[in-house]
Design a protein around this nucleic acid. Structure first.
Lengths: 120, 120
DNA sequence: GAACGAGATCACTATATCGCCATATAGCGA
DNA sequence: TCGCTATATGGCGATATAGTGATCTCGTTC
Protein backbone atom coordinates (compact mmCIF):
# COMPACT_ATOMS: atom_id res chain seq x y z
CA UNK A 1 0.00 0.00 0.00
CA UNK A 2 1.48 3.28 -1.04
CA UNK A 3 -1.28 5.50 0.23
CA UNK A 4 -0.46 7.62 3.22
CA UNK A 5 -3.82 7.77 4.87
CA UNK A 6 -6.70 5.57 3.93
CA UNK A 7 -9.17 8.40 3.65
CA UNK A 8 -7.04 10.71 1.58
CA UNK A 9 -9.51 11.51 -1.18
CA UNK A 10 -9.10 12.24 -4.81
CA UNK A 11 -5.51 12.63 -5.88
CA UNK A 12 -4.84 13.78 -9.40
CA UNK A 13 -5.08 10.82 -11.69
CA UNK A 14 -2.88 10.39 -14.72
CA UNK A 15 -4.30 10.24 -18.21
CA UNK A 16 -3.38 6.57 -18.44
CA UNK A 17 -5.11 5.78 -15.17
CA UNK A 18 -8.21 7.62 -16.29
CA UNK A 19 -8.30 5.65 -19.52
CA UNK A 20 -7.97 2.37 -17.68
CA UNK A 21 -10.73 3.24 -15.26
CA UNK A 22 -12.93 4.49 -18.08
CA UNK A 23 -12.50 1.27 -20.02
CA UNK A 24 -13.59 -0.76 -17.00
CA UNK A 25 -16.68 1.33 -16.54
CA UNK A 26 -17.35 1.18 -20.26
CA UNK A 27 -17.45 -2.60 -20.02
CA UNK A 28 -20.33 -2.17 -17.58
CA UNK A 29 -22.13 0.40 -19.68
CA UNK A 30 -24.15 -1.87 -21.98
CA UNK A 31 -27.40 -3.57 -21.00
CA UNK A 32 -26.55 -6.81 -22.77
CA UNK A 33 -23.26 -7.12 -20.93
CA UNK A 34 -24.95 -6.32 -17.65
CA UNK A 35 -27.49 -9.01 -18.31
CA UNK A 36 -24.72 -11.51 -18.99
CA UNK A 37 -22.98 -10.51 -15.77
CA UNK A 38 -26.27 -10.70 -13.90
CA UNK A 39 -26.73 -14.25 -15.14
CA UNK A 40 -23.17 -15.17 -14.23
CA UNK A 41 -23.69 -13.82 -10.73
CA UNK A 42 -26.08 -16.70 -10.22
CA UNK A 43 -23.37 -19.16 -11.18
CA UNK A 44 -21.39 -20.54 -14.08
CA UNK A 45 -23.01 -20.72 -17.51
CA UNK A 46 -21.90 -22.02 -20.87
CA UNK A 47 -21.91 -19.61 -23.77
CA UNK A 48 -24.91 -21.41 -25.20
CA UNK A 49 -26.86 -21.03 -21.97
CA UNK A 50 -26.06 -17.34 -21.95
CA UNK A 51 -27.22 -17.01 -25.54
CA UNK A 52 -30.51 -18.64 -24.70
CA UNK A 53 -31.06 -16.85 -21.42
CA UNK A 54 -30.09 -13.42 -22.70
CA UNK A 55 -32.14 -13.54 -25.87
CA UNK A 56 -29.26 -12.07 -27.88
CA UNK A 57 -27.70 -13.70 -30.92
CA UNK A 58 -24.76 -16.00 -30.54
CA UNK A 59 -22.29 -13.76 -32.37
CA UNK A 60 -23.31 -10.84 -30.24
CA UNK A 61 -22.99 -12.69 -26.97
CA UNK A 62 -19.65 -14.06 -28.01
CA UNK A 63 -18.30 -10.58 -28.70
CA UNK A 64 -19.60 -9.16 -25.46
CA UNK A 65 -18.08 -12.05 -23.53
CA UNK A 66 -14.75 -11.49 -25.23
CA UNK A 67 -14.82 -7.87 -24.12
CA UNK A 68 -15.69 -8.84 -20.56
CA UNK A 69 -12.90 -11.38 -20.60
CA UNK A 70 -10.42 -8.78 -21.83
CA UNK A 71 -11.24 -6.51 -18.92
CA UNK A 72 -10.70 -9.40 -16.54
CA UNK A 73 -14.24 -9.36 -15.25
CA UNK A 74 -15.23 -12.71 -16.70
CA UNK A 75 -13.21 -15.90 -16.92
CA UNK A 76 -13.74 -18.72 -19.39
CA UNK A 77 -12.55 -22.29 -19.57
CA UNK A 78 -13.10 -24.80 -22.35
CA UNK A 79 -14.76 -28.05 -21.40
CA UNK A 80 -14.88 -30.25 -24.42
CA UNK A 81 -17.09 -28.59 -26.97
CA UNK A 82 -18.49 -25.96 -24.64
CA UNK A 83 -17.03 -22.93 -22.97
CA UNK A 84 -17.93 -22.26 -19.36
CA UNK A 85 -18.05 -18.64 -18.19
CA UNK A 86 -17.83 -17.29 -14.66
CA UNK A 87 -17.28 -14.05 -12.80
CA UNK A 88 -13.54 -13.67 -12.40
CA UNK A 89 -13.43 -10.38 -10.53
CA UNK A 90 -15.60 -9.97 -7.44
CA UNK A 91 -15.63 -6.22 -8.00
CA UNK A 92 -18.39 -6.85 -10.51
CA UNK A 93 -20.74 -7.97 -7.77
CA UNK A 94 -19.84 -5.05 -5.56
CA UNK A 95 -20.20 -2.44 -8.26
CA UNK A 96 -23.51 -3.75 -9.49
CA UNK A 97 -24.90 -4.18 -6.01
CA UNK A 98 -23.88 -0.66 -5.13
CA UNK A 99 -25.36 0.84 -8.28
CA UNK A 100 -28.56 -1.15 -7.94
CA UNK A 101 -29.22 -0.19 -4.37
CA UNK A 102 -28.40 3.43 -5.13
CA UNK A 103 -30.89 3.48 -7.98
CA UNK A 104 -33.47 1.75 -5.84
CA UNK A 105 -33.12 4.43 -3.19
CA UNK A 106 -33.46 7.12 -5.81
CA UNK A 107 -36.54 5.58 -7.37
CA UNK A 108 -38.18 5.06 -4.02
CA UNK A 109 -37.43 8.66 -3.15
CA UNK A 110 -39.00 9.89 -6.36
CA UNK A 111 -41.98 7.62 -5.96
CA UNK A 112 -42.54 8.90 -2.45
CA UNK A 113 -42.25 12.48 -3.66
CA UNK A 114 -44.82 11.85 -6.35
CA UNK A 115 -47.18 10.00 -4.06
CA UNK A 116 -48.00 12.98 -1.87
CA UNK A 117 -46.23 16.22 -2.50
CA UNK A 118 -47.13 18.72 0.23
CA UNK A 119 -46.07 21.60 -2.02
CA UNK A 120 -48.70 20.98 -4.68
CA UNK B 1 -36.77 -2.72 1.89
CA UNK B 2 -38.33 -5.38 -0.22
CA UNK B 3 -35.40 -7.77 -0.23
CA UNK B 4 -35.85 -10.92 1.74
CA UNK B 5 -32.29 -11.47 2.90
CA UNK B 6 -29.59 -8.90 2.70
CA UNK B 7 -27.08 -11.19 1.07
CA UNK B 8 -29.36 -12.68 -1.51
CA UNK B 9 -27.26 -12.13 -4.61
CA UNK B 10 -28.13 -11.39 -8.16
CA UNK B 11 -31.82 -11.49 -8.80
CA UNK B 12 -32.98 -11.19 -12.37
CA UNK B 13 -32.97 -7.58 -13.36
CA UNK B 14 -35.54 -6.07 -15.67
CA UNK B 15 -34.60 -4.57 -18.99
CA UNK B 16 -35.44 -1.12 -17.68
CA UNK B 17 -33.25 -1.59 -14.63
CA UNK B 18 -30.38 -2.79 -16.78
CA UNK B 19 -30.68 0.26 -19.00
CA UNK B 20 -30.68 2.58 -16.02
CA UNK B 21 -27.64 0.93 -14.52
CA UNK B 22 -25.88 0.91 -17.88
CA UNK B 23 -26.47 4.63 -18.35
CA UNK B 24 -24.94 5.36 -14.96
CA UNK B 25 -21.86 3.35 -15.77
CA UNK B 26 -21.71 4.93 -19.21
CA UNK B 27 -21.47 8.33 -17.58
CA UNK B 28 -18.31 7.08 -15.89
CA UNK B 29 -16.85 5.56 -19.04
CA UNK B 30 -15.11 8.60 -20.54
CA UNK B 31 -11.71 9.87 -19.41
CA UNK B 32 -12.71 13.51 -19.68
CA UNK B 33 -15.72 13.00 -17.45
CA UNK B 34 -13.63 11.05 -14.97
CA UNK B 35 -11.12 13.88 -14.88
CA UNK B 36 -13.90 16.36 -14.17
CA UNK B 37 -15.22 14.16 -11.38
CA UNK B 38 -11.73 13.70 -10.04
CA UNK B 39 -11.33 17.48 -9.86
CA UNK B 40 -14.71 17.88 -8.21
CA UNK B 41 -13.77 15.31 -5.59
CA UNK B 42 -11.27 17.85 -4.34
CA UNK B 43 -14.03 20.42 -3.93
CA UNK B 44 -16.35 22.72 -5.81
CA UNK B 45 -15.18 24.26 -9.07
CA UNK B 46 -16.70 26.69 -11.52
CA UNK B 47 -17.12 25.56 -15.10
CA UNK B 48 -14.30 27.88 -16.10
CA UNK B 49 -11.96 26.36 -13.56
CA UNK B 50 -12.81 22.92 -14.84
CA UNK B 51 -12.15 24.01 -18.41
CA UNK B 52 -8.74 25.30 -17.44
CA UNK B 53 -7.80 22.40 -15.19
CA UNK B 54 -9.00 19.71 -17.56
CA UNK B 55 -7.40 21.09 -20.70
CA UNK B 56 -10.56 20.39 -22.71
CA UNK B 57 -12.49 22.96 -24.70
CA UNK B 58 -15.25 24.91 -23.05
CA UNK B 59 -18.03 23.50 -25.21
CA UNK B 60 -16.81 20.01 -24.54
CA UNK B 61 -16.62 20.45 -20.79
CA UNK B 62 -20.05 22.01 -20.77
CA UNK B 63 -21.58 19.07 -22.57
CA UNK B 64 -19.87 16.52 -20.34
CA UNK B 65 -21.06 18.39 -17.26
CA UNK B 66 -24.61 18.44 -18.59
CA UNK B 67 -24.49 14.67 -18.97
CA UNK B 68 -23.13 14.22 -15.46
CA UNK B 69 -25.84 16.51 -14.15
CA UNK B 70 -28.52 14.52 -15.96
CA UNK B 71 -27.38 11.33 -14.26
CA UNK B 72 -27.54 13.09 -10.90
CA UNK B 73 -23.86 12.62 -10.21
CA UNK B 74 -22.98 16.30 -10.39
CA UNK B 75 -24.93 19.28 -9.11
CA UNK B 76 -24.67 22.85 -10.37
CA UNK B 77 -25.80 26.17 -9.02
CA UNK B 78 -25.57 29.53 -10.71
CA UNK B 79 -23.74 32.24 -8.82
CA UNK B 80 -24.05 35.39 -10.84
CA UNK B 81 -22.18 34.85 -14.06
CA UNK B 82 -20.52 31.64 -13.07
CA UNK B 83 -21.80 28.15 -12.48
CA UNK B 84 -20.44 26.22 -9.53
CA UNK B 85 -20.25 22.44 -9.85
CA UNK B 86 -20.04 19.84 -7.12
CA UNK B 87 -20.40 16.12 -6.58
CA UNK B 88 -24.08 15.52 -5.87
CA UNK B 89 -24.02 11.76 -5.41
CA UNK B 90 -21.46 10.27 -3.03
CA UNK B 91 -21.61 7.02 -4.94
CA UNK B 92 -19.18 8.63 -7.38
CA UNK B 93 -16.46 8.70 -4.76
CA UNK B 94 -17.12 5.12 -3.73
CA UNK B 95 -17.21 3.75 -7.26
CA UNK B 96 -14.05 5.53 -8.34
CA UNK B 97 -12.19 4.63 -5.16
CA UNK B 98 -13.18 1.02 -5.57
CA UNK B 99 -12.17 0.88 -9.22
CA UNK B 100 -8.91 2.71 -8.57
CA UNK B 101 -7.79 0.46 -5.76
CA UNK B 102 -8.78 -2.61 -7.74
CA UNK B 103 -6.70 -1.50 -10.71
CA UNK B 104 -3.83 -0.62 -8.42
CA UNK B 105 -3.87 -4.13 -6.99
CA UNK B 106 -3.93 -5.60 -10.45
CA UNK B 107 -1.07 -3.48 -11.70
CA UNK B 108 1.02 -4.23 -8.65
CA UNK B 109 0.34 -7.89 -9.18
CA UNK B 110 1.44 -7.72 -12.79
CA UNK B 111 4.48 -5.66 -11.92
CA UNK B 112 5.49 -8.20 -9.32
CA UNK B 113 4.97 -11.01 -11.80
CA UNK B 114 7.18 -9.28 -14.33
CA UNK B 115 9.84 -8.46 -11.79
CA UNK B 116 10.74 -12.06 -11.10
CA UNK B 117 8.78 -14.76 -12.80
CA UNK B 118 9.86 -18.15 -11.51
CA UNK B 119 8.50 -19.83 -14.65
CA UNK B 120 10.85 -18.10 -17.06
C1' DG C 1 -11.82 -39.10 -41.80
C1' DA C 2 -16.60 -37.27 -42.50
C1' DA C 3 -20.36 -35.14 -40.34
C1' DC C 4 -21.77 -32.42 -36.53
C1' DG C 5 -22.09 -29.04 -32.83
C1' DA C 6 -20.35 -25.05 -29.94
C1' DG C 7 -18.27 -21.08 -30.27
C1' DA C 8 -15.18 -17.42 -32.48
C1' DT C 9 -14.45 -14.33 -36.11
C1' DC C 10 -15.41 -11.56 -40.36
C1' DA C 11 -17.78 -8.12 -43.17
C1' DC C 12 -21.35 -4.98 -43.16
C1' DT C 13 -24.95 -1.55 -41.72
C1' DA C 14 -26.94 1.46 -38.43
C1' DT C 15 -26.49 4.33 -34.71
C1' DA C 16 -24.21 6.79 -30.96
C1' DT C 17 -20.66 9.71 -29.29
C1' DC C 18 -16.62 12.74 -29.25
C1' DG C 19 -14.41 16.96 -30.16
C1' DC C 20 -14.60 21.11 -32.72
C1' DC C 21 -16.34 25.63 -34.44
C1' DA C 22 -19.78 28.94 -34.47
C1' DT C 23 -23.43 30.97 -32.29
C1' DA C 24 -26.93 31.88 -28.64
C1' DT C 25 -28.20 33.16 -23.88
C1' DA C 26 -27.85 35.40 -19.63
C1' DG C 27 -25.95 38.10 -15.74
C1' DC C 28 -23.17 42.23 -14.88
C1' DG C 29 -20.96 46.80 -15.10
C1' DA C 30 -20.48 51.22 -17.59
C1' DT D 1 -28.91 50.27 -23.42
C1' DC D 2 -24.30 48.44 -24.79
C1' DG D 3 -20.92 45.69 -24.49
C1' DC D 4 -18.36 42.03 -21.80
C1' DT D 5 -17.84 37.63 -19.71
C1' DA D 6 -19.26 32.87 -18.45
C1' DT D 7 -21.69 29.21 -19.98
C1' DA D 8 -24.95 26.58 -22.99
C1' DT D 9 -26.35 24.89 -27.41
C1' DG D 10 -26.53 23.53 -32.42
C1' DG D 11 -24.41 21.55 -36.35
C1' DC D 12 -20.77 18.86 -38.44
C1' DG D 13 -17.21 15.41 -39.55
C1' DA D 14 -14.75 11.50 -37.73
C1' DT D 15 -14.68 7.49 -35.08
C1' DA D 16 -16.48 3.80 -32.18
C1' DT D 17 -19.71 0.34 -31.05
C1' DA D 18 -23.83 -2.78 -31.36
C1' DG D 19 -26.20 -6.10 -33.87
C1' DT D 20 -26.58 -9.40 -37.82
C1' DG D 21 -25.75 -13.22 -41.17
C1' DA D 22 -22.11 -15.87 -43.06
C1' DT D 23 -18.13 -18.30 -42.41
C1' DC D 24 -14.28 -20.41 -39.97
C1' DT D 25 -12.19 -23.43 -36.22
C1' DC D 26 -11.85 -27.18 -33.55
C1' DG D 27 -13.26 -30.86 -30.50
C1' DT D 28 -16.54 -34.87 -30.64
C1' DT D 29 -18.75 -38.84 -32.54
C1' DC D 30 -19.80 -42.11 -35.78
Amino acid sequence: MSRKKSNEPARELSTLALELIASRFRALSEPVRLRLLNLLMRGEHTVGQLVEASGSRQANVSKHLALLRDTGMVGMRKEGLTTVCYIADPIVNELCEMMCSRLREEMEGKAAALAFDPKI
